[in-house]
Nucleic acid binder design. Sequence first.
DNA 1: CACCGTTACTGTAGCGCTTTAGTCAAGCGC
DNA 2: GCGCTTGACTAAAGCGCTACAGTAACGGTG
Lengths: 349, 349
Amino acid sequence: MVDETTPADPPRKRRRVTIADIAERAGVTSGAVSLAVNGKPGVSDATRARILDVARELRWRPSHAAQTLMGKNSEAVGLVLARPAEVIGEEIFFSKFIAGVQATLSGRGFSLMLQMAEDTAAESAIHQAWILDGRVDGILVLDPRIDDPRIEALASLDHPTIVVGGHTNEKSIRSLEVDNAGAMRLIMDHLHGLGHDRVAYVTGDQAFRHISERMDAFSEFCVDQGVWGQSLAGNFDPERAREATARLAGAPRPPTAIVYDSEVMAIAGMSTLASLGLAVPGDVSVLSWEDSTTCQVLHPTITALSRDAVALGRTAAAEILQLIAGEAVEQEAVATRVVHRESTGAPRA
Amino acid sequence: MVDETTPADPPRKRRRVTIADIAERAGVTSGAVSLAVNGKPGVSDATRARILDVARELRWRPSHAAQTLMGKNSEAVGLVLARPAEVIGEEIFFSKFIAGVQATLSGRGFSLMLQMAEDTAAESAIHQAWILDGRVDGILVLDPRIDDPRIEALASLDHPTIVVGGHTNEKSIRSLEVDNAGAMRLIMDHLHGLGHDRVAYVTGDQAFRHISERMDAFSEFCVDQGVWGQSLAGNFDPERAREATARLAGAPRPPTAIVYDSEVMAIAGMSTLASLGLAVPGDVSVLSWEDSTTCQVLHPTITALSRDAVALGRTAAAEILQLIAGEAVEQEAVATRVVHRESTGAPRA
DNA sequence: CACCGTTACTGTAGCGCTTTAGTCAAGCGC
DNA sequence: GCGCTTGACTAAAGCGCTACAGTAACGGTG
């Protein structure tokens, strides 16, 4: 019969409801309340029920700060993005990845702590602050670089961490393997299978481990299969992709197919080809590393390496949760395939 | 002579460095340390300098948990997304908005707490938990609905909150005004100015306040200017946009221009028109509410309402920070304009 | 019936920090 | 020399919660 709608409640400063309030009301001490709400033995069933009733009635919620002060988990995972805001805003990968991470995390009641940093040094500083403060239980690292200073720093902190994409030298740090070499082989098999033997690859930022892995696999494939192949360095900037495309198109012996390291670059490249009067895939085939709705609706539709970034995010989240819980981490491969669309076809004979 | 480097330190569990450690080493009490590190009067300059030196040397960082327990700010802002993961992954608006929010927040040392929720009820529960725990200092609400239950709930919690887009009935809650009606007028002025007098509007989810505001402005413009105008309900799903487009194209008197409520829908619509053999803008003009790189590179390029979602996020973050700091909140309008590209032109005579 | 083991609690000491009330010596004016 | 201020600290309480050492009552046992 206790009605807490508080009809004429004076709207003054609302004080926090604490276990002491519950204790008083239930006629026990705060210690007993703690045992009761945490499901630990030491209180009779009757008392426990009474305490829980009062707690519910008072709309009590445990103080997170007090709990982490006692060394409890913070139920949050941290992710720092060290890329320019424009890139994060444009590249569909990030929002998909984050959406995937969130979907899994939220299902388990975890939150995501997100920050952007200017550079990897700033990113490490944030990692450090979060971990020492116990604000996050685990950290997700994106875009690993060759000899990444962040990973070294994290290894010394000895905290649950998952590096997404590219394994690390630090064996104490888990990484979510992304088979960049295998994916590149899928792409090259596709193009080679169509008959292409002059392929160009317009890359993203080579400082990233995953990009350099792709480049290596590209070169190896070309050598092994006798394909003429050339990488042109880019940095995810569509303008750079335009320049690279124009250079390739104007070459004495232009490639018959171009692979772009991102959807944004592929689109920029394709529009450049169109403006140069080149037909896709008639004169040159185009393939995008990363799929999106845009690839499906553009004319011609763009053949793309589809990786399901949402699933990647989900997997990363699941793994970090397992790591936090101290369970064995089981690697789950993210399905990767080439979706054949209109932008790739047999080269002109 | 106190040397705490402990030469043969066994690498066991790393204990947290606390102000007590600093106090001991500096030969003062923890109270003095607190005064020193917080820049408060009560310690001599010499002592303060000594304390700060020791703190730096020991790499001390204040315990966030202890501080929030004392009622300090948590230096974080919360944002809950209540849309399907796929939509968040596809719509460029979200990543741009979040990137913008982050850019401003990070600059001031704040973090973003991000969660996804199934529905608005779950979203409110998360808000409540965050606020009562003091885990966030402020909350950002996106996609306000007509008679939004979340806003009511937040109003009763009396916590810094900014509703992005659409003002609220609750005058205690601040909102970041987005002039949907004005933007719709810009769009219609553009089309009407080109000579269109049969315009269709394929909408997003009408439960959202911003969508209904746009629809109202659309209707009003049409009535006032004697333009034949019709809204077709969508829900941001490209498939729905395709259906709507096909229906419009097949009508006895089809519209000469179609406005789509999102870039994803505009692209879907345009590809549908193409597959029906209709020329853009020859047979029908297309306009997208929301700009993106894709709009710029598609053939034809798409005329779009450009709102700079990154700036919107930045502004939202700046406002919530001002609100948290207790400063006066100054509304800063986000530049909005129609970017005229190839997809709109004069209707065929 | 003294003895022991449970059960169901209570009381209190922290976790790391802030804050307030005190303490104590030095300095000042008359 | 006395009272009084001032500056520079110290001591201790308290934020909300957990953990752990007690303790009182009860029931069973030989």
